[in-house]
Computed example of a mutant assay.
Amino acid sequence: MFKNLQLATATLPDADALVYEPLDSRYIRIMRIGCALLWIFGLAAVWVIYLIADEPKAWLPVFLALSAALLLGLIGNQSILHRAFQYRGIAVRE
């Protein structure tokens, strides 16, 4: 039977004392694809809204600015993701 016992947080081992193993280098590819799909979905949503707008020509500068911001966000996110991946790891415990 399943039990969900409460633990005293003072008895848990300190996270700094753990030895972390780096993640598999292939995992960053999965992370990059997932993040890129999210940004591309946002970009597609912006353009779908543009296409159904009442006066698309009047809103073109706004949608171009939003598109540029999303593309810069995608590029920035991909570069930060690479740096953040270097600090990630796993630690197997009891």
Rank of each mutant, 00 (worst) to 15 (best):
M1P: 12
M1A: 07
F2K: 12
F2P: 09
L5S: 14
Q6D: 12
L7H: 08
L7A: 03
A8S: 10
A8E: 15
A8N: 15
T9V: 05
A10C: 05
T11S: 14
T11D: 15
P13C: 03
D14Y: 03
A15M: 06
D16V: 06
A17P: 00
A17W: 08
A17L: 07
L18P: 10
L18M: 12
V19L: 07
P22E: 05
L23E: 10
D24C: 02
D24A: 02
S25R: 04
Y27T: 00
Y27G: 04
Y27S: 04
I28C: 05
I28D: 09
I28P: 15
I28M: 07
I28V: 02
R29V: 03
R29D: 15
M31Y: 09
R32G: 07
I33R: 03
G34P: 09
C35S: 04
C35N: 09
A36K: 01
L38G: 00
L38H: 06
L38T: 02
W39L: 00
W39S: 00
W39Q: 01
F41T: 01
F41G: 02
G42H: 05
L43G: 04
L43K: 00
L43C: 00
L43E: 05
A44P: 00
A44C: 01
A44M: 03
W47N: 02
W47Y: 08
V48A: 12
V48H: 09
I49L: 11
I49K: 08
Y50W: 15
I52V: 08
I52L: 13
A53G: 03
D54K: 06
E55H: 09
E55P: 02
E55Y: 07
P56S: 07
P56Q: 13
P56M: 14
K57V: 10
K57I: 08
K57Y: 15
W59C: 04
L60H: 11
P61E: 14
P61Y: 10
P61T: 09
V62T: 13
F63T: 04
L64C: 07
L64G: 06
L64Q: 12
A65G: 10
A65V: 11
S67D: 04
S67F: 05
A68Q: 10
A69N: 11
L70R: 09
L71H: 06
L71D: 03
L72H: 08
L72C: 05
L72W: 06
G73V: 02
L74A: 01
L74K: 06
I75F: 05
G76L: 03
G76Y: 08
Q78R: 00
Q78K: 00
Q78P: 04
S79Y: 09
S79A: 08
I80L: 11
L81N: 13
H82F: 10
R88L: 11
G89L: 01
G89I: 00
R93E: 15
E94C: 11
